[in-house]
Simulated assay, not measured.
Amino acid sequence: MSGIIMDRRALLRGAGCAGLGLALGPHAARAALLPLRFVYADNVVPFSYADADGNATGLLKDDVDVVTSAAGYSQTTSLMPWGRAQATVRAGQADGFCTVPSADRAVYVQFCLQPVMTSDIGIWHRRDDDRFKAVGSLEELAAFSLGSYVGNGWATEHVGTIPTLAMVPDPVSVLKMLAAGRIDAFVHDELQMGYLARAAGLTGTLAYTPRPFLGQVVRTLAIRRSLPDCAAVVASLDAAILARRADLDALARRVRLGMA
């Protein structure tokens, strides 16, 4: 059965059934005794958000289910604002999260070396505007009116000083501004914004153009350094990511198809 059409629950069940059967080394048996407490941002569709019963769901949670189950762990989940989620891990009140590696987070967590998902960063623009295929640098991009949303770390770091940058509370509002012609472009990855554009009915109006100079978004698991045997835990998770790469890629394809 193709991974694209495989039922999401079947993917997760398959990873769970593998459990300790994977050749993940001597840490796997020890890992089976230890549930890991993961925290997620509470409203980042399609990556992490609450389902109808208030439980954590989304692509990141599914990815962590696949990886932890394959490594012989279980995970418990909590949803909260992202700033508080990071503080909770830093304080040792939770064990990990799944996010973009950064130097400030690496002070208190150890990131897996293997990514659970990688997504190109590109330029979202109106479908009838073909100027962005020729843009080759941030300096050239700054000539356009840009939009972003509060909490977008990439925009804050790379285009935050551009005077024409319009900031709004959430990414869907940026997409709607773009569709209405109030801004020229929105720099973001294709995975999340493609899903949101489809959900908002904007794919007929908006287009995405990848530009190599913008790089990629890489997300992976991170475990607090204060957790006993942190390095061994991370090693077993890295092995599980490699072993379950096909399942992780299939989950990402489902999001790209709007099937999450």
Rank of each mutant, 00 (worst) to 15 (best):
G151L: 07
P169L: 12
T77F: 03
A85L: 05
D128W: 00
K61Y: 06
T164Y: 11
V217I: 13
I123Q: 05
V100W: 06
L242M: 10
R131F: 07
M193G: 12
V39Q: 03
D238R: 03
V39G: 05
A197P: 05
S102V: 06
Y108L: 04
A252G: 05
D170P: 05
L33K: 05
D238G: 00
L237H: 01
S119I: 01
L175Q: 12
A240Q: 02
L237I: 02
L24M: 06
Y108K: 03
V168T: 14
M6S: 02
R9M: 15
D120G: 15
S102I: 01
P212T: 07
A18K: 11
S145R: 11
Y195V: 09
M193E: 10
D42I: 00
P163D: 13
A250S: 01
D184Q: 06
L196T: 07
V187Q: 04
R127F: 00
V174A: 12
T68S: 10
V217T: 11
Q75Y: 01
S148C: 08
D63Q: 06
T220I: 02
H27V: 13
T118W: 11
S137C: 07
D104M: 10
L175T: 04
L36T: 07
I162G: 15
M177R: 06
T156N: 15
F213S: 11
C112K: 09
R127N: 05
A240R: 00
S48H: 08
R244C: 04
T99M: 00
L79S: 00
F213G: 11
L237R: 06
R126T: 10
P163H: 05
L202W: 02
V217K: 04
T209S: 14
T118K: 12
D249R: 09
G122F: 10
P210G: 04
G181C: 04
S226Q: 15
R182L: 14
